[in-house]
Nucleic acid binder design. Structure first.
Lengths: 112, 112
DNA sequence: GGCATATTCAACCATCCGGTTGACGATCGG
DNA sequence: CCGATCGTCAACCGGATGGTTGAATATGCC
């Protein structure tokens, strides 16, 4: 842990990785199950998971031949705290946010 | 605007760019003044500013021969909102955050 | 007009990134 | 022990990224 913000933000900049995090929000998952909805090789997903792990955004625990991935919220929360210092000066334009997020959530799992 | 989270997080993943944002929190600045504290060519800083602008994190307005850069908080706020959905499930470990942030803030402007 | 200032453009370079394929190492079940 | 399953490793590829330098383009000043 104590991963620099560099790694956290870089990890979050990829839509596949954000989709993976969203999936892990629901439940812990094995690597194969994480990969299943994506049109990508297992090795590709494995790399993404390694990047998320390096950034501290997830933890991976091997149990038998299955490696379980679980969300590790502290890293993302630290980044949130850093970012919020920039938001406290203007009144929040919530409508703009919702429009903003709508774009991302309209295609919610970039699952494919 | 309506920039995808991809561009926002990618822009935030570079320490030089985060330092620039921190500087702009204080005040609007001309490109040359932004570049001054960094041991980097002006063209390099200009590129960083273009990336921040593309991501919607800053706005750039040319007045005469000077281009003024100002913080544009909506983009970052949108990212904050996205991230917070991952933090609302566990109780927050504020001590961990502060340790986390201390690392980044101890070297606060990676100014050089 | 002519010079200095402010900023970008263009080309180039090394490195990283996202992805693939194929071989490999573990581990489980019969 | 054998075969199937789970996952990573290694090599490779094309394209993006972070940086440089040097020339080019505005604009302002006298």
């Amino acid at each position: 842990m104590t991963q620099p913000l560099d790694a956290i933000f870089a990890a979050l900049s990829d839509p596949t990785r954000r989709a993976i995090l969203t999936m892990l929000l629901e439940d812990d998952m094995a690597v194969t199950d994480v990969a299943e909805p994506f049109a990508m090789s297992l090795a590709g997903i494995s790399k993404h998971l390694a990047i998320l792990d390096d950034a501290g955004l997830i933890g991976q625990e091997r149990r038998g031949r299955v490696k379980w991935c679980k969300l590790e919220p502290d890293a993302m929360r630290a980044a949130t705290v850093w970012m919020q210092s920039f938001g406290q000066f203007d009144p929040v334009d919530l409508d703009a946010f919702e429009r903003f997020l709508a774009d991302e959530l309209a295609t919610p799992p970039p699952i494919d």
